[in-house]
């Protein structure tokens, strides 16, 4: 089970990276980066999963005294919460810059932006 989630995450990461490398359109590159981002998040959450345990929330089914033997690892989930939020901020920034580049050149083709190429 954990292996399936892990493999899905790695696969999403590779697909996203491939998309970012091969697409010439800035918007498609941004979408590809978000796919890679989602893949990494899936990997981190999958690493925290443990067989036969439940979510790290204490209630009637998971009394506080037995928590350590009943819940999965909460730390990766807290990490991914942060990562998702930062990912949204980065995506918004990339979209804003893409808009500005389009405004300057009337094109979203990455091949039209040669200034920093060596």
């Amino acid at each position: 089970m954990a292996h399936i989630a892990l493999a899905t995450g790695f696969l999403l990461f590779l697909i996203g990276l491939y998309g970012a490398l091969t697409n010439r359109n800035l918007l498609r590159m941004i979408v590809a980066f978000t796919v890679a981002d989602a893949g990494i998040n899936v990997v981190i959450v999958a690493v925290g999963h443990m067989r036969g345990r439940t979510a790290p929330i204490l209630d009637g089914a998971v009394p506080a005294a037995e928590a350590a033997s009943r819940i999965i690892d909460p730390v990766p989930q807290a990490l991914v919460l942060t990562a998702i939020v930062i990912g949204v901020g980065i995506t918004a920034l990339m979209l804003a810059y893409a808009y500005k580049l389009y405004e300057a050149r009337r094109s979203l083709d990455i091949g039209k932006f040669m200034e920093l190429k060596w």
Partner: peptide, 29 residues
């Protein structure tokens, strides 16, 4: 080569055991 852990690591164990008594939050995350 990935093998899922059988028990919580030290940090997670501390959070699991201390959260209810120290902070009173039901959601450990």
């Amino acid at each position: 080569g990935y093998h899922p852990d059988e028990a919580l690591n030290l940090t997670a164990c501390y959070y699991a055991e201390r959260t209810a008594a120290d902070l009173g939050a039901a959601n450990i995350v």
